[in-house]
Design a protein around this nucleic acid. Structure first.
Lengths: 148, 148
DNA sequence: TGATGATGGTTGCCAAAGTCAACTAACTAT
DNA sequence: ATAGTTAGTTGACTTTGGCAACCATCATCA
């Protein structure tokens, strides 16, 4: 089931192209004061991540570093923590009202970024692109093992 | 030509999925002595980037920082520079033999990463995925302005 | 119960990464 | 010639991130 060289080349080419398009390598995310990492943390907390440890595992971050980032976000009144009911070691994270606002702002900008990229493309072609994306996603998902 | 909310959502959903699958947001470039940035520089030089300035623009890097990274790569005998024929300010960059070897190693590892992700997928489906990627790339490229 | 080991999180210390501004040398245009 | 740009370097920083030691809590089990 090994891929031939040409296939790999095409996939890697797409990856380079797409990461560039999304500005994934830019230092600041979407021209906010927040880094990509901070944005992702807010997003993941909003999506249900509840503790520093969960976030650290998911985002693959050193726990010391994680602790510091969260400290900053707490100092800036973007999130709060309260002790976990059952396990007092765990601090449950939640966005503050301000944090929710900021997240909304980030989402708005992310939406705008997509608009900027796709607005020149005729609707029919956009639909085709979206269908292709969905197909890629479905295929990879179908054969994905739990462990990676 | 504005996209509807559902379309944007689907695209962003794909983006999150794909960046996660490819570990595109990981900060570690596993098991080489080189950082992701150094790897990208070698790749881009190999792909035809010729000067610090070009690289800096493309990779969106501070020129001071760029200068230092290149200094290190030169000290390590990974690349060399020679003056540009017409413009003596410009230093034309080239990989050394050692640099080419290292690039080959980096490419090998990147290829392996792709293998790991796609090896469970039947060849027919992989071909379909690759075709979808190519289609996405072609469509976006076709309507892309020079400025973003 | 209390010893042992694992887990969630914090902190100090440090190296690597990245920023910013000032600077030189070479180019371009008038 | 002069003025304004551009390619690249350097010094002086700040930020990011990695590592290990540490504390508090939890879980297990004799």
């Amino acid at each position: 089931m090994t891929l031939d060289a040409q296939t790999i080349k095409q996939i890697r080419d797409f990856n380079r192209f797409y990461t560039k398009i999304l500005h994934l390598t830019d230092r600041y995310h979407l021209e906010t004061q927040f880094t990509l990492l901070e944005s992702r943390i807010l997003i993941e907390i909003d999506q249900g991540m509840t503790s520093a440890n969960q976030l650290g595992q998911f985002l693959n971050l050193d726990k010391g570093y994680m602790s510091r980032i969260l400290r900053r976000l707490k100092d800036d009144d973007i999130l709060v923590e309260k002790p976990h009911d059952q396990d007092k070691r765990i601090k449950v994270l939640n966005l503050t009202a301000k944090g929710a606002e900021i997240l909304a702002e980030i989402n708005q900008r992310a939406d705008n970024q997509i608009q900027t990229i796709f607005k020149r493309i005729p609707p029919k072609d956009v639909d085709q692109v979206v269908a292709n994306m969905a197909a890629i996603q479905a295929t990879i998902r179908r054969y994905q093992s739990v462990r990676d």
